[in-house]
Design a protein around this nucleic acid. Sequence first.
DNA 1: AGATCGGGTTGCGAATCGCTACCTATCCTG
DNA 2: CAGGATAGGTAGCGATTCGCAACCCGATCT
Lengths: 173, 173
Amino acid sequence: MGDFKLREPLEELAAQCSLPAALEAIGERWAFLILRAAFNGLHHFEEFQSTLGIARNILANRLGRLVEHGIMVRAPLPDDRRKIEYRLTEKGEALLPTMIALRQWGEVWETGTPSTPVLVDARDGVPVREVHVLSHDGRELGWHDMRWATAEDLARGTVCGGEDPAFRELAAE
Amino acid sequence: MGDFKLREPLEELAAQCSLPAALEAIGERWAFLILRAAFNGLHHFEEFQSTLGIARNILANRLGRLVEHGIMVRAPLPDDRRKIEYRLTEKGEALLPTMIALRQWGEVWETGTPSTPVLVDARDGVPVREVHVLSHDGRELGWHDMRWATAEDLARGTVCGGEDPAFRELAAE
DNA sequence: AGATCGGGTTGCGAATCGCTACCTATCCTG
DNA sequence: CAGGATAGGTAGCGATTCGCAACCCGATCT
């Protein structure tokens, strides 16, 4: 027991968009919270278990899955071979913007209060900005400032003002 | 059947961080994909069902939950009262940066290819930037450029260079 | 050697998922 | 206005998955 099977239907959708692929890796219950704990400096099974209150078998399963997906690495410590260190890989660290964006959304729309601890710039101790989608020239874009474009749209430059040199550059590849 | 009960343990954690609160709202399987479909312009039960391939009772449950959480609104159309429109609220639209960040992560670390369709700036048709965590002065911060700060850290300005005027301003509240 | 600790696995009942069939209003058509 | 099609769900039921508690086993400590 404890070896759960994959649920397939997401994979079909992954052909079109990589969101399903991402969810396959970290979309399960607890995965994001384990990740947050890891970002908070936790590295050991018992630490995750006691601070998250997650069931042990589920935790073992999730850690295993995160390792499978290359999001964390499992390393037995040389000085105490009972201890196993779970550590974020570069791939795992790359999930930070997603996690912060989700947390900030929760702050604004769910809890209404800033979470602690706060993530600050290590250089000057100032809290980080709110995560936004930015245009190529750095403007903050709301949903109504964007649109979807197909591969052909991009290649043709038929979307709107295809005169922009930065666009030509991007569309070229 | 179909009325699922909430699982509580997440709520305790929500006191400290609003990530659990956010996950309570959109952390379930399919929720993000329904959201993506909504961002792609789908508005009706059958549209979601056929494009996502999700089971009908699960879809009904998820849509209901998203509506409960104020992420979507359910509106019967006046001209055809069989039809129900599901539409993103402002709160739902605010999830776009999270979704894009997750999708971009999937593109880079899972599928390795850009997804279609591509999200572009409506003004000039240029694809949006990759989502990053930015410092108050706009630098892109990697995980190792940040740290966690407690409320006291912020109030005291003991973190590092507390001389920054922007920091004083933020720490004041 | 015996106790303890870190990191799991096993069993089992409860909750959730997914599939296939209904079901109920509303249109639409003759 | 009867009969069918359409939109949006429910109900039943087997297959997974979750959560809890108990057990296991190889280090390590005393």
